[in-house]
Amino acid sequence: MLYFENWSEFLAMDGHGFYVWSAYAVGLLVVIYNVLSPMMAKRKVIASIQRQERLAKGVGKMSSITESSLLQDGRGAQ
């Protein structure tokens, strides 16, 4: 059974609202950090692998081209 009469009582937590909610907020932050961190890392890793692949393909296809035009090629492909 619900132990609070209405929303404002729920938020106030009988005067302890600040403590309860800040504790839960820290919990939420930790959860968000743990979810976001691998997601961002994954994006970085995939980007670096794709970049590595593009460079390798570029070198394979046109081995006579100078380094600067190789870089241009990579940028254009994006």
Binding site: M13, G15, H16, G17, Y19, V20, A23, Y24, G27
Partner: peptide
Amino acid sequence: GNSYRIIFIH
């Protein structure tokens, strides 16, 4: 009182 509810995270 209600502050013990922190236990569910702590």
